[in-house]
Amino acid sequence: MIADLSFWIFSDYAVSTAIKLAVVMLIIPLTSLILVYVFLFKMMAFMQSRLGPMEAGPHGSLQLIAEALKFLQKEDIHPDNADKHVFALAPIIVLMSTFLLYVVLPVGPDLVVEDLDTGIFYAMAVSSLSALGVLMAGWASANKYALLGGLRAAGQLIAYELPLVLAVVGVVIQAETLSLQGIVHAQANWEIFGIGSGMPFIVTQGIGFAIFMVAAQAELTQTPFDMPVAETELVGGFHIEYTGFRFLLFFMAEFGTAFAFASIASVLFLGGWSLPFVDPTANWLNIVGPGVMLAKILFLSMIIFWVRFTYPRLREDQLQKFAWKLLIPAALANIVFTGVFKVAF
């Protein structure tokens, strides 16, 4: 009996699963930490002629840890009229959708938690789970501002799911695979009119990239599409009633998802961990790959946050018009062109 158990515990499957779980569990707080420190604290501060946090750690680099500890010490407050179970579950669902996204993200030839054949399809599917959590939070808080925020978020996330998926279709047609690892390999081996080797798909999918980034901005509820949180009108929207640890979960999910979307975009359009003119099966890419990927992710996150700190926000109806009248037709046109070119060449 004991021998059986030890056999199971030390089996390859159990060990690799445990490692993968640990990696995902560690990576999400880490990514939020990087994004929050580099962009929310420092880049924003420099844009606004401030210094940002300077006291906790060198140049305030431990500020977020201090903040997290502060959040953990706070009292967990439920509003009296809140639907307690739904209220408690909502941030977990939002964070879960972020966790699930990380499962398919490749960072090297062999570095991926699970290389699903339907990778990008899976990623798009689990990313929309967060809409459910946001709506639950908005409804269960028993707060009018939260309700408005939750409903706005639901409308917005559904409207922007479409251009997001449609923008991806162009890449999928070109790569002939849904697997994210496959898409990276397709880019690493791709030649355009016999020139170059390992050109990223952004060369031909520029429109798709633009649509994906705009839609991702809306999915992440970042300015100019941040009406669900809109702190000057809805005072935080769906997470207005959350304090302490539960708020921290929302916070982590926000930045964790931003990181995940930036990495999906870098995989789809910028070649992920691969480098041009480099054999994608080389073993050393397992070490260099994550760094390459991180550079691309930080670049894309910088664009996301740059826009966030600069632009005012649109109104809800203007946002919907923008999605249905501009982004979706453009994405459909992009698919048609990609299909025609794919067949023609």
């Binding site: 924003m44 844009m47 606004q48 002629s49 401030r50 300015t223 100019p224 941040d226 809109a230 000057t232 700190f309 600069t310 632009y311 005012p312 926000r313």
Partner: peptide, 16 residues
């Protein structure tokens, strides 16, 4: 006015 509309940066320029 920028903050009211969601743009965070102009108000810091104003304060500066």
């Amino acid at each position: 006015m920028g903050v009211q509309l969601g743009a965070l940066t102009p108000v810091f320029f104003a304060f500066r």
